[in-house]
Write a protein that binds this DNA or RNA. Structure first.
Length: 826
RNA sequence: GGGCAAGUGGUGGAAUGGCAUACACGUUGGACUUAAAAUCCAAUGACCGUAAGGUCGUGUGGGUUCGACUCCCACCUUGCCCACCA
């Protein structure tokens, strides 16, 4: 049989069916075996797999198959992140049921995954919109609620005043609603939050444990958590007559600059702004600015180089360290949700304060001076001086370094009771409410006093209703069957919570559910979870470096805290695969530059596609798709096919190493060198060089000519063929499975043991030594492998060519790197 | 502004202190063929040279070393992430 696409399609179908029928990839929880858990980030059911998915899953599949052959008990599951906005949008546009829409797309994608030969354990399949899955979202929410990690707070949302609905950020286009075109407003409504900040320190500290995560992902998480040490300072607030009317706290990381405070500035959202402006001359202006800022999106407000705007509030504050009275301002450059929402402004030593002070003619006074220079003149400064320096104009602290002053001043303020050292995080609590239909209903109801109460466990899941209307506000509120909760004991009706959960909630723990996916009675069995966790290898896109991974780490830590599991970190090793590009651009539907994996499978088969994807670039790098280069993958597989089909002979005698001639020995050595290299490359995710190594072996075998009647040489050839099939099986599983069977095996190649190299096969009697003169390559010498430095030196210096370069000059050094190279320094 | 990657032939890439450009794509020439496809063989960094051979060469400039794509310092460029975070 020839290696044609027609035959390939037949055998790929045949083996996919065989693997499924014989449940080759089903994972059993078995504590007597060492486990390996491989996981890819489960996809959103968008409708079709794209090359990015194919690359992701190919990498995972190779890891899973390789580890199985190495004897590990491998868990390799798949599912869908199937709640989310696109299904709801489609429902609104086409009047289609989100459930039907989603199920259809899931089915299509599962069929595609199967056609790629991915070795998933389909018995553990899960998807988020399954009530058997999302009931556990609800259960987790209630556990968190009971632990005090869930609370309600007013928060701003995007509000479409025409459609009367909340919009997600991606539904706001240029400040307008995506359907109505109406100007989007900010509206304050009560929403549910999860107190992830309670775990901020743990989430930050434990990043150190993650030795096998990319540095940049850890850096992103660290920045996102954004821990900073500083001082909270309490100010007395005074009216225009100098009478104390209130108090105010600010947070600073630069307590060394407190003697240079010239004004205090509040975020427009700060509740005190309205209060203090009341009755002032510019009260109307202040109120207008607050309203204007509320309308602006964060993107507009935080635009680069945007001019800072502010207004004086007509009240004052007394600086506790020097008694100086400074004005209070309100400005749009201050953020309400960082620190205390109020900032002590030091124009001389903070660039933002400097620009603001210049614009509004506020004074600038220097308290830190550059080391060894004349005192800075505020009149002549072109920008703030933000570097460390020497303290000036700062009372008892004059003369010491500003770095030292940070500690000294905060200690002093603490002892005086004017300030307190504080730790602040950039990380905020997680807003999980969505006024959306296609998500997990938040399992709460409101009692007669309007207080939220959890739905009892035995009433879970709170199922999504079908009788809803879109486009009239929060969809669940339009459902008559859903709106009210009836207490089964008393028959009393209560109003239900009608918000659903952020879909990031679903994806924060699915990896735990896979360990016991069919469990009807509990979220998962702890023994199963403790056996399989952590995920040994997690693979996905860099776009999830922050939120998904942080939430998952948080959930794992939460589960540990309530005794459900023992794992501290969910993902032991993380691989972020690079994007797939076409002509240097990311493939995307909108650009029209997509390559459809189905087309490639039809034309080349999935084995060729897998070989190409792995060969073209290392997994973490971007991959440039090349229609021509995939021919190379096809050619390589053809050569392996022909080797086995045409040159393998089942009637060869037992291989006898003692009968080898020089050429045999070399081939035998190449096989074992390849086993060693390919194994290492698989372990280090270097599939491109693993494939290149196998190509090199194929090149050597093709050149290996021999007398057909020589039995031992035929045995050697059979030996090569078998080993290539084993090494290639994780990458091109269908073809290797087929050929494995054809050469007479009655067990699956997938069930075979991974080959081990023999040290004695790698030994060489003669080696080639590179000889350099002054670091330049001047010759190669074939010498016995055990040659000594002196012997080598004698051989090399006797050589005529080398003598041309050494030419009677004094030899200052003779460096010999055993087995590799010699350098003569003259 | 801060952080993290990366920069090597016509192209994807290999080499992480020791032969720069493995392997593959592409290109060119050849074999086979009536022809084409497929397959096979050979060449393929630049410059000088008939050749043997030589010189240069891994973003730029310096340094360490017998020896640097690899390590160190400075810079340039590109990409990604974060960012009026006090």
């Amino acid at each position: 049989m020839a290696y044609t696409i027609h035959e390939i399609k037949k055998l790929e179908d045949k083996w996919q069916a065989y693997w499924a029928d014989h449940k080759i990839f089903a994972a059993e929880t078995d504590s007597s075996r060492k486990k390996y858990y491989v996981l890819e980030m489960y996809p959103y059911p968008s409708g079709k797999l794209h090359m990015g998915h194919v690359r992701n899953y190919t990498i995972g599949d190779v890891i899973a198959r390789f580890r199985r052959m190495q004897g590990y008990n491998v868990l390799y599951p798949m599912g869908f992140d199937s709640f989310g906005l696109p299904a709801e949008n489609a429902a609104i546009k086409n009047n289609e049921s989100p459930r039907k829409w989603t199920d259809q797309r899931m089915n299509d994608m599962v069929a595609q995954m199967k056609s790629l030969g991915l070795s998933y354990d389909w018995s553990r399949f899960l998807y988020s919109h399954d009530p058997e899955y999302y009931r556990w979202n609800q259960w987790i929410f209630i556990q968190m609620y009971k632990q005090g990690l869930v609370y309600k707070k007013k928060s701003l949302v995007n509000w479409d005043p025409v459609d009367n609905t909340v919009l997600a950020n991606e539904q706001v286009i240029d400040g307008k609603g995506w359907r109505s075109g109406a100007e989007v407003e900010k509206k304050e409504i009560e929403q549910w939050f999860i107190k992830i900040t309670a775990f901020a320190d743990e989430l930050l500290e434990d990043l150190q444990q993650l030795d096998h995560w990319p540095e940049r992902v850890k850096a992103m998480q660290k920045n996102w958590i954004g821990k900073s040490h500083g001082t909270t300072i309490r100010f007395e607030v005074l009216d225009a007559d100098g009478q104390k009317i209130d108090e105010l706290e600010t947070f600073t990381t630069r307590p060394d600059t407190v003697f240079g405070i010239e004004y205090i500035v509040l975020a427009p959202e700060h509740p005190k702004c309205k209060e203090w402006a009341q009755g002032q001359d510019n009260e109307q202006e202040v109120l207008t600015m607050i309203a204007d800022v509320a309308k602006e999106s964060m993107i507009e407000r935080m635009g680069e180089n945007r001019e800072k705007n502010g207004l004086p509030l007509g009240v004052y504050a007394r600086n506790p360290v020097n008694g100086k009275v400074v004005p209070l301002w309100m400005a749009d450059y201050v953020l309400m949700d960082y620190g205390t929402g109020a900032v002590m402004a030091v124009p001389a030593h903070d660039q933002r304060d400097y620009l603001f002070a210049k614009k509004y003619n506020l004074p600038v006074s220097v308290v830190i001076n550059p080391e060894g220079q004349d005192e800075l003149n505020p009149e002549q400064m072109a920008e703030a001086f933000v570097e460390p320096g020497v303290m000036v104009n700062s009372g008892d602290f004059n003369g010491i370094s500003s770095t030292e002053a940070i500690t000294k001043i905060s200690e002093w303020m603490e002892s005086e009771g004017t300030g307190q050292r504080t730790v602040t995080y950039r990380l905020k609590d997680w807003l999980i409410s969505r006024q959306r239909y296609w998500g997990t209903p938040i399992p709460m109801y409101y009692d007669d006093d309007g207080n939220p109460q959890p739905i009892p466990d035995d009433q879970l899941p709170v199922q999504l209703p079908d009788d809803i209307e879109f486009g009239r506000g929060n969809p669940l509120e339009t459902s008559e069957t859903f709106k009210y909760y009836t207490d089964p004991a008393t028959g009393k009706k209560y109003r239900r919570e009608t918000d659903t959960m952020d879909t990031f909630f679903d994806s924060s723990w699915y990896y735990l559910r896979y360990t016991d996916a069919q469990n009807k009675n509990e979220i998962f069995n702890s023994t199963a979870a403790n056996y399989w966790m952590p995920v040994d290898q997690y693979i996905g896109g860099i776009e999830h470096a922050i939120l998904h991974l942080l939430y998952s780490r948080f959930f794992t830590k939460f589960f540990k805290s309530i005794g459900l599991i023992q794992t501290e970190e969910p993902f032991h090793r993380l691989l972020t695969q690079g994007m797939v590009l076409l002509h240097g651009e990311v493939m995307s539907k909108s650009k029209g530059n997509v390559v459809d994996p189905d087309d490639i499978v039809r034309k080349y088969g999935s084995d060729s596609m897998r070989v190409f994807i792995l060969f073209a670039a290392p997994p973490e790098d971007q991959l440039e798709w090349n229609d021509q280069a995939i021919d190379g993958a096809w050619k390589f597989l053809t050569r392996v096919w022909n080797l086995v089909e045409k040159r393998y002979k089942p009637d060869a005698p037992e291989l006898d190493v003692s009968q080898f001639d020089k050429a045999d020995k070399e081939i035998y050595r190449s096989i074992h060198a390849s086993i060693k290299k390919v194994t290492e490359d698989y372990q280090n995710y270097k599939y491109n060089t693993a494939i290149s190594c196998m190509m090199i072996l194929m090149n050597a075998v093709d050149k290996y000519k021999f007398d057909k009647s020589a039995g031992n040489k035929q045995a050697l050839l059979n030996y090569v063929a078998e080993h290539i099939l084993l090494l290639l099986a994780p990458i091109a599983p269908h073809m290797c499975e087929e050929l494995w069977q054809r050469i007479g095996h009655d067990t699956c190649v997938m069930k075979s043991e991974w080959p081990e190299y023999k040290d004695e096969a790698l030994k060489q009697d003669e080696i080639q030594i590179i000889v350099q003169v002054n670091g330049k390559l001047r010759g190669r010498f074939d010498v016995p492998a055990d040659i000594s430095k002196d012997e080598l030196q004698a051989v090399v210096l006797a050589d005529e060519k080398i003598q041309n370069f050494v030419g009677g000059k004094e030899i200052r050094k003779f460096i010999y790197v055993p087995g590799k190279l010699a350098n003569i320094v003259v």
